[in-house]
């Protein structure tokens, strides 16, 4: 499977599984869509942690494959998978290590929380390929970082560091690489049984900060 799913103590681990780059192929998006549909019927989950197998989150979509197959329906389906993830009644945490680019960064932006490795590289480089982010990244970046920053980073197509992302409000915590997944799990466990759309700031302050302040 390009999209691996396990459950540990009621926390679902969704792992992009095409190492080393965990490229988001058409097949990945199809499998993700099916998986998220299944997840949405699971009643006993507490939270979900999304990460990549190996050292990277994901390098994003396979552009060659995408260009050969692009049509509105595919894009809408991909978006639908992201939206379903976002609308789950449990918090979704992206655990970001290594590269997190393009569609992969868009997937992370659809998560409620983003915990990021110090040496991670993030960005929306689509414009450098004569394209644009196509699965809602534009909206999310504008909401989190403001329109001016959004224009700048998306038109330039630059990559940026975890600390830059933190400063722009696009990730919630920056920690050493080997702490990213354990911390995301601890955070998922520390969160109370949460109602739909938890208060982000409250959760970060009350349940995430104490975990990595002591590490």
């Amino acid at each position: 499977m390009t999209c691996q799913w396990t459950i540990e103590q009621r926390v679902g681990l969704l792992t992009m599984n095409q190492p080393p780059s965990n490229t988001m192929t058409m097949r990945f998006f199809e499998e993700l869509h099916v998986l998220v549909r299944e997840i949405s019927t699971m009643n006993d989950l507490k939270a979900i942690v999304i990460s990549g197998n190996g050292r990277h989150y994901s390098s994003g979509a396979d552009i060659n494959e995408l260009l050969q197959n692009v049509d509105q329906r595919t894009m809408c389906d991909n978006y639908h998978a992201f939206i379903m993830l976002e609308q789950l009644e449990i918090p979704v945490i992206s655990a970001i290590r290594g590269v997190c680019l393009g569609s992969a960064f868009e997937l992370a932006l659809f998560s409620r929380f983003r915990i990021c490795a110090r040496d991670a590289v993030l960005g929306l480089p689509e414009s450098t390929f004569n394209l644009m982010p196509g699965i809602g990244g534009i909206q999310r970046v504008a909401a989190l970082a403001g329109k001016a920053k959004a224009i700048e980073i998306i038109l330039r197509g630059i990559t940026f560091s975890a600390m830059d992302a933190l400063e722009m409000g696009m990730v919630d915590a920056v920690v050493p690489g080997n702490r990213v997944i354990p911390l995301s799990m601890e955070f998922a466990n520390a969160l109370p049984e949460i109602v739909y759309k938890p208060d982000r700031e409250l959760c970060l302050h009350k349940f995430l900060k104490p975990l990595y302040a002591t590490n």
Binding site: L66, L67, Q68, V70, D71, Q72, M75, C76, Y79, F129, N130, L131, M132, P133, G134, G136, I138, Q139
Partner: peptide, 13 residues
């Protein structure tokens, strides 16, 4: 956004 994206992708292809 989907329409804009698809149009760019077709051009680039």
């Amino acid at each position: 956004e989907t329409l804009l994206f698809c149009s760019l992708a077709r051009d680039e292809a």
